[in-house]
Design a protein around this nucleic acid. Structure first.
Lengths: 236, 236
DNA sequence: GAAAACTGTGTCCAGCGGACACTGTTTGCT
DNA sequence: AGCAAACAGTGTCCGCTGGACACAGTTTTC
C-alpha cells in the first residue's frame, strides 16, 4: 500500500490518539477539520489553504503538519466531519421509502456544504461516515432478489443522481449571486441560437416549477428498481 | 452580466476571429486548447498550468494571455475541444435506443478524457458542443407527453448517472495504478470492519462482474422513464 | 538529572496565476 | 511614402500556495 493512502486510512479509520512523551498537542484533528469546514462553508473549497485554516485557529500553518500529512488528508477529514450520519431507517419502512429518505437527506447535506461536491471528485479514500451511507442503501435493498453487484450499482445510481441534482441546484445559487447569473447567460445563449437547439429552447420556454428535479429522477429510478425487483421476486 | 462570464461566452460562442491591424497572431485558440488537452490527457487536469501549456507550444506563458483572459477560460476551451459531437440518432431509433446510445457515447468520452470530470464540476458557462448533448437528449424525449421541465430533469438524471459511472470507473483505473490500489484499500477496510458494514461486506463478497454498472443504471432509468411515458400516453 | 520524544515556529523553496511595462512588427490613414 | 496606432510576444515582478527542514522549547521516561 502506498504511503499516502496508508496515512489517510490511519487518519480516518485509525485509533483516535496514542499517549506520548513530549508536550501535549494544543490542537485536535476535530478542531482542525472544523476550522477547514468553516472556511469552506463561507468561501468555498478554493479558499481553504493551510494558512487560512491555521490562521483561524491562531496557529502557524506549519503546526498543522504535525497533525495532518498534507492538504489532501485535511480535506478528507473535512469531508468526514461535514458529512451527516445517514438517516436511520424508520420502523416498517419498505425499501422504497428508505431509499427516498436517504436521497433527500443526502441532497440536504450537499446543500448545506456545497463544497462537498468539489471535495469528493476523483479517486480517494472514503471515511467511516461516508461508508455508512453506502451501507444503508445496500442494506435497504437486501433480500429483494438483487445480486451483490446489482445492489452496489443501485447505490452508485442513486448517489450519482443526488450529486447531479446538487450540482444543478448549486449552479442556480441564491438570487443575485454570480452563479444565478449563469442561468440567465444560458437562457440568453439558448434563445439566441434557438435554431441550433430547438428542443432545449422549447423545453426551457415551458412553464412549470424547476424544483422537482430531485423527485423526478428519484421516482424514475425507484420505479425502475421496483420493476426489476418485481421481476426477480415473481420469478423465484 | 459579469465581465468573466461575458468573456467566456464570447470565447466559446463568439465570432471565430476579427481582422486587425498589428502583427498576425502566431497561435490559435484551437492549438492552445489542444495543447492543454494533451497535458491533461497525459497527467491530469492538475498538471495543466499556463507555463506547461505555453511550453508545449514553445511560447512564454504570458503570450497565452493574449488569447485567453485567464486559466478558467482556457479550461472551458479545453472542455469544448475534448467533448465529442453527440451521436446522431439512428434512423428509426425510438427514444429509448437514442438515449441508450447517447449515454454509452458520453461514458466513452469521459473514459477518453477522465479530467473532464474535474473540469466540469461547479457552475460554469457551457459551450456549443456541450449544449448539443443536452439538445439531443431533450429532443429524443419530445412528443411523449413529458413537460419541458420533465425533459430537462430527465437529461440531468441521465447525465448524472453517466458521470457517476465515469467517476467510479476512473477510481478503478488500470491495474497497478495508484487508483486501483484504492479499491483494495476499500476492500481491506470493509473486511476489517465487516461488523459495522455487513450489507456492503456481503455485497462485495458476492461474485459477478462489476462492469455492468453503466448498463444497470441505464436500464433502471429507462424503465422508469418508460413507465412514466406509458402512463402519460395512455391517459391522453 | 539527563536524554529522548514531541510540539510549535521561522525560514526557505519552487511553482502557481496574473499585472504591467516594454520591444518589435504589421497595418491603415493621411 | 511615411507615420502613428494597434497589436504580438517577452521579461520582470508580486502575492499566494503546498511543503521541506532546522531549530527552540516543553514534557516525559529512564
Amino acid at each position: 500500500m502506498s504511503e499516502a493512502a496508508n496515512d489517510t486510512v490511519r487518519l480516518l479509520w485509525g485509533p483516535p490518539a496514542k499517549p506520548t512523551r513530549g508536550p501535549k498537542p494544543a490542537l485536535t484533528l476535530e478542531r482542525i477539520a472544523a476550522a477547514g469546514v468553516e472556511v469552506a462553508d463561507a468561501e468555498g473549497l478554493g479558499a481553504v489553504s493551510m494558512q487560512r485554516v491555521a490562521g483561524l485557529l491562531d496557529f502557524t500553518k506549519m503546526s498543522l503538519y504535525r497533525y495532518v500529512p498534507g492538504k489532501a488528508e485535511l480535506i478528507a477529514l473535512m469531508v468526514e466531519s461535514a458529512v451527516d450520519e445517514p438517516p436511520r431507517p424508520a420502523d416498517g419502512a419498505d425499501w422504497r421509502e428508505q431509499l427516498s429518505a436517504w436521497a433527500v437527506h443526502l441532497a440536504a447535506t450537499f446543500a448545506r456544504h456545497p463544497w462537498l461536491l468539489d471535495a469528493t471528485v476523483g479517486p480517494r479514500v472514503v471515511g467511516p461516515k461516508e461508508l455508512t451511507w453506502l451501507e444503508r442503501v445496500v442494506a435497504a435493498l437486501d433480500g429483494h432478489g438483487l445480486t451483490g453487484p446489482e445492489r452496489m450499482d443501485a447505490a452508485v445510481l442513486l448517489a450519482g443522481h443526488v450529486r447531479g441534482i446538487a450540482e444543478q441546484s448549486r449552479a442556480a445559487g441564491p438570487a443575485g449571486s454570480p452563479e444565478a447569473e449563469l442561468l440567465t447567460v444560458l437562457d440568453t445563449v439558448v434563445r439566441r441560437h434557438a435554431d441550433r437547439y430547438p428542443a432545449v429552447a422549447a423545453a426551457m420556454a415551458d412553464p412549470g416549477g424547476r424544483d422537482q428535479a430531485l423527485d423526478f429522477g428519484l421516482e424514475r429510478i425507484l420505479d425502475g428498481l421496483a420493476a426489476l425487483i418485481e421481476r426477480r421476486t415473481r420469478q423465484t
